[in-house]
Design a protein around this nucleic acid. Structure first.
Length: 243
DNA sequence: CCATTAAATTCAA
DNA sequence: TTGAATTTAATGG
C-alpha cells in the first residue's frame, strides 16, 4: 500500500547525499531518460507513516532520497522484528522484486521522508539496458544478504549485552554521530526490536554501560564514550564486524 | 511480564 | 515559548 502525497515530478537525485556510490546519483541519466520515466514518482511521508504494508503486492521499489526508515517484519508472536534501518541512497522493498510476490516486510518513516518510486516495469527495462546499474544493484543485494546472514548468527550466538552493543555499533557505523550523540534517535523498544530482545533488557544493558562509562544517554540521545571497549567486547565472540 | 514513578517529547495555545 | 498532555525510560516486584 502506498500512502502519502504523490508529486508528479521527475526531478532529482538524493537531496542530502554526497555519497559517491549513490545509485541514484550515479545512474541519474539512465534512470530518468527512459520513456517509462513517467512512471517514477516522488512521494513524501511524514514521520511515523507506514508506506509498505506487510502482505501488500509488490509492484515496484523505493529509493530513499532523504530521511530514515525502519524496515521490519512481524514475527510469530506478533513481535516486531526490525530487519534494518535505511538511510538515503538505499533501496527499500527489493525482496520479491521480479516476481509477483507480496511484501514480506513493512517499512515506516522514522522521520519525514522523501522516496523515489520506480515501477517494476521501468526498472526491469532499465536494468536490461544498463549493465553498470545492474552490477551496482547486485552489489547492494550482496551486501544486504551478507548483513542479514551475519545478523542471524549474532542473534543466535551472542548474549543480550553483546547484541545490544552490536546494535549501537551498527547505528554508529551507519548514521554516525552529531555533537557526541548518535545521529539517529531511537526508542529503547526500537533497539530491542533490532537486537531481538525486550525493551527492559535494553534499558538494563544501557544502564550498566552508563555505569561503566562506556556510553552516556539523555533520553533518546545516546553518546558513545568508548567505542574501542565496545568493539572489543563484540570481537571476543565475533571475529569480524561487517561494514 | 506488569506497575509505578521519573523523565523526556510533543503539541498547541 | 511555555506548560499541559502524552509518550518513553528506568526500576523493582
Amino acid at each position: 500500500m502506498i500512502s502519502g502525497k504523490i508529486e508528479q515530478r521527475k526531478e532529482g537525485a538524493c537531496d542530502t547525499c554526497e555519497n559517491p556510490n549513490c545509485l541514484i546519483n550515479n545512474h541519474y541519466e539512465v534512470l530518468f531518460s527512459s520513456s517509462l520515466a513517467q512512471q517514477s514518482t516522488v512521494l513524501k511521508c511524514k514521520k511515523g507513516q507506514q508506506f509498505i504494508m506487510e502482505g501488500a503486492p509488490v509492484n515496484g521499489l523505493f529509493f530513499l532520497k532523504s530521511g530514515t526508515v525502519k524496515v521490519f517484519r512481524t514475527g510469530i508472536n506478533g513481535r516486531e522484528q526490525i530487519v534494518r534501518f535505511a538511510k538515503p541512497c538505499e533501496i527499500i522493498g527489493h525482496r520479491g522484486f521480479g516476481t509477483q510476490e507480496f511484501y514480506s516486510i513493512g517499512a515506516i518513516a522514522l522521520q519525514d521522508v522523501k522516496l523515489h518510486y520506480f515501477s517494476k516495469e521501468h526498472l526491469q527495462e532499465t536494468l536490461m539496458a544498463n549493465p553498470k546499474l545492474t552490477y551496482d544493484m547486485m552489489m547492494f543485494y550482496a551486501n544486504e544478504l551478507n548483513r542479514s546472514e551475519n545478523k542471524v548468527k549474532s542473534i543466535s550466538q551472542m548474549t543480550v549485552r553483546e547484541r545490544v552493543i552490536d546494535s549501537l555499533l551498527y547505528i554508529h557505523r551507519k548514521f554516525g554521530e552529531l555533537n557526541g550523540f548518535l545521529n539517529l534517535p531511537l526508542s529503547r523498544r526500537e533497539y530491542a526490536d533490532y537486537s531481538g530482545t525486550t525493551e527492559e533488557q535494553v534499558i538494563r544493558v544501557f544502564s550498566a554501560l552508563k555505569k561503566e562509562k562506556l556510553i552516556s544517554a539523555q533520553g533518546k540521545k545516546i553518546g558513545i564514550n568508548n567505542i574501542q571497549m565496545l568493539r572489543k567486547e563484540i570481537s571476543d565472540h565475533n571475529y569480524f564486524l561487517d561494514s
